[in-house]
């Protein structure tokens, strides 16, 4: 069984079917890119995976076990536990504006640490560990000197790198990116893509919804092409881009 499997996921908003029986799987350490035109359901799929949106039918399997089956009513706590297998980086960054960069990174891990049994006795050490981890991750995304800056003082590219760092803080099993460069000026996309490449080299399992075709081709182990709520074609990136089989992918690549 694959590391992560999406089985037969469907989702409608009113009468519009956004996802129709989506199936795909990926292995640990792989990078899967999801491409396709706007409105093809890419973002909705990613939101379903992150439990931000409830699918009407289908299942998710993670590490060979059933993670979620549509219709299952989850308590807030269980929902959160399941959700935390995944990390999410949004198109609009969604940094918390009132916190500086480092606080953005440390807020959620700090709150989670409070639930640990050793919180009372090891409070200081735990917070110290979180702070050190934040420093390491900020260095990794090249933003050590911006630790005390507020989001409004950063460029879009820097904000997105902070958002990636924030997601990395919780070491999710699968890190999801929803068009991470779409809100950026063209000259700022490079720095974000560079971080993504480094993460791929470190074998971090990622699902990336993107419009950057060259990037998807270069970084991915597998590319999934979605159109009108279905996976029209998927496979090896080289093959997909050089020799598309489905007419819809041919048309899509011709436009790009």
């Amino acid at each position: 069984m694959a590391y992560f499997e999406v089985n037969n996921i469907s989702k409608s908003f009113g009468k519009t079917e956004v996802l129709k029986n989506i199936d795909f799987s990926m292995e640990k350490g792989q990078v899967v890119s999801i491409i396709g035109s706007s409105g093809s359901g890419k973002t909705t799929l990613l939101r379903c995976i992150n439990f931000l949106c409830e699918p009407d039918q289908g299942q998710f399997h993670l590490e060979g076990e059933l993670l979620y089956e549509a219709g299952e009513k989850l308590s807030d706590r269980l929902l959160r536990d399941k959700r935390m297998n995944f990390g999410m980086v949004f198109q609009q960054f969604n940094l918390f504006p009132q916190y500086n960069v480092k606080e953005n990174l440390c807020l959620a891990p700090g709150l989670l640490a409070k639930e640990k049994p050793d919180w009372r006795t090891r409070k200081k050490e735990i917070l110290q560990e979180i702070a050190e981890r934040a420093d390491r991750i900020l260095e990794q995304v090249g933003l050590s000197e911006k630790a005390a800056a507020y989001p409004c003082e950063l460029s879009g590219g820097q904000q997105q790198r902070v958002a990636i760092a924030r997601a990395l803080m919780l070491s999710p099993k699968i890190l999801c990116f929803d068009e991470p460069t779409s809100a950026l000026d063209p000259e700022l996309t490079g720095e974000v893509l560079r971080v993504l490449k480094e993460l791929a080299q470190k074998k971090i399992t990622m699902i990336i919804v993107t419009h950057e075709m060259n990037f998807a081709r270069e970084i991915s182990d597998k590319v999934v092409f979605m159109a009108d709520g279905v996976i029209a074609e998927e496979g090896d990136p080289e093959r997909l881009f050089t020799d598309p089989q489905s007419p819809r992918l041919k048309a899509f690549l011709a436009k790009e």
């Binding site: 931000l52 959160r80 935390m84 995944f86 990390g87 940094l95 807020l107 959620a108 709150l111 919780l170």
Partner: peptide
């Protein structure tokens, strides 16, 4: 949503 995906209640 950013808060939820970070495991906040």
């Amino acid at each position: 949503e950013a808060g939820y995906v970070l495991g906040m209640t």
